[in-house]
């Protein structure tokens, strides 16, 4: 197990280098350091000196990937790519274009992101499973068909519509909750609406998926045997079907957990929640390379952690699986 994890972590290194390289190429194909400096230094009275200063200070000077003029190993190390990438591996994201320290900002913003993403995630799964189980009890009836169609209907509505509609009705028309904003002291007032919207928006596809999973295991032999033994339908459901379906459900969930740290981009931006999702949106809109790079790197690391956790959870959920 331990050896396996170490090997997976080693395997992550080339992936992270690849991710970094790709970000670099994509960004610098179109943006020259000169452009970045100008965008940053503003409109009025800018001098070339100031621009050169900025580039030098930020470490964007010199060749991008290969320094033909340097000797030996410096061909690769005395480049923008090398200078900019090495600190990333130590999670030192440096300063954003506006001079703020990125790591500090990320840590500060992770809190609000999690307070939104975690409840949405947990309540969402809970509601989805409950609804799916409920529907399962009525399998084959018209109520079942009706709910399945409702699920498809729910998932055919654009996510944006739930947000726009919810915000309009609840906050603006009925004045039940604040329009947007965030405050630690009574965060629930700001989070209630986005969480409810997030849960409803995910209900259709989630409950439908779980229903399909439950149906699959309810047709299997252990369920038949249990029924044959005279166990009530509820008993079969909760004591046999649910635990056995937990395996695919859990493995599907585990990958997502680390990504919760990244926040919900659209939701945070609509409700002005100062989390990582809106941080990422800002980075895109400001074209702030330092921030984009940091977020891409962080996302990649979390994704890889998610993959490793999934593998581990397989062994946990199904003792027959061994990691080697």
């Amino acid at each position: 197990m331990f050896a396996y994890i170490v090997r997976r972590l080693l395997y992550a290194i080339p992936i992270l280098i690849g991710v970094n390289l790709l970000t670099f190429v994509l960004f610098f194909i179109v943006n020259t350091p000169d452009n970045m400096a100008r965008a940053h230094l503003g409109d009025k009275y800018v001098t070339q000196d100031a621009i050169d200063n900025w580039i030098e200070e930020k470490g964007y000077h010199g060749p991008m990937f290969i320094n033909a003029e340097a000797e030996g190993i410096e061909t690769l190390t005395d480049t923008v790519f090398f200078r900019q990438s090495i600190p990333l591996f130590a999670f030192d994201f440096g300063q954003a274009d506006n001079g703020r320290d990125i790591s500090t900002d990320i840590v500060e913003r992770m809190g609000p992101s999690l307070t939104l993403a975690l409840p949405t995630f947990i309540i969402g799964i809970w509601v989805n499973i409950c609804v799916a189980l409920m529907v399962l009890m009525f399998r084959g009836t018209s109520l079942d068909r009706f709910t399945v169609i409702s699920f498809v209907t729910l998932m055919s509505i654009s996510y944006m519509f739930y947000i726009i509609g919810g915000q309009y009705l609840i906050s603006k028309e009925w004045q039940l909750l604040p329009v947007s904003g965030f405050h630690e002291d009574d965060a629930w007032r700001f989070l209630l609406l986005p969480v409810v919207i997030g849960v409803i928006a995910g209900l259709g596809s989630g409950a439908r998926l779980y229903r399909a999973l439950f149906i699959e295991s309810s047709g299997q032999d252990f369920a038949r045997t249990a029924r044959a033994k005279g166990v009530t339908e509820t008993g079969v459901l909760f004591r046999h079907i649910l635990p056995n379906t937990m395996i695919p459900i859990l493995t599907g969930i585990v990958v997502v957990i680390p990504m919760l740290f990244m926040g919900a981009l659209v939701m945070e931006s609509f409700f002005s929640i100062p989390g990582l999702g809106s941080f990422m949106l800002d980075a895109i809109q400001e074209q702030d390379f330092s921030k984009i790079r940091a977020m891409v790197y962080l996302g990649a690391v979390l994704y890889i952690i998610g993959l490793i956790l999934t593998d581990i959870s397989y062994t946990w959920a199904d003792p027959r699986v061994r990691l080697s």
Binding site: Q175, V179, H183, F190, L192
Partner: peptide
């Protein structure tokens, strides 16, 4: 569930 009884509007964005 929604709001502890208080003399405050529900949709107040700042404490």
């Amino acid at each position: 569930l929604l709001s502890a009884c208080s003399d405050d509007p529900w949709n107040r964005p700042l404490p």
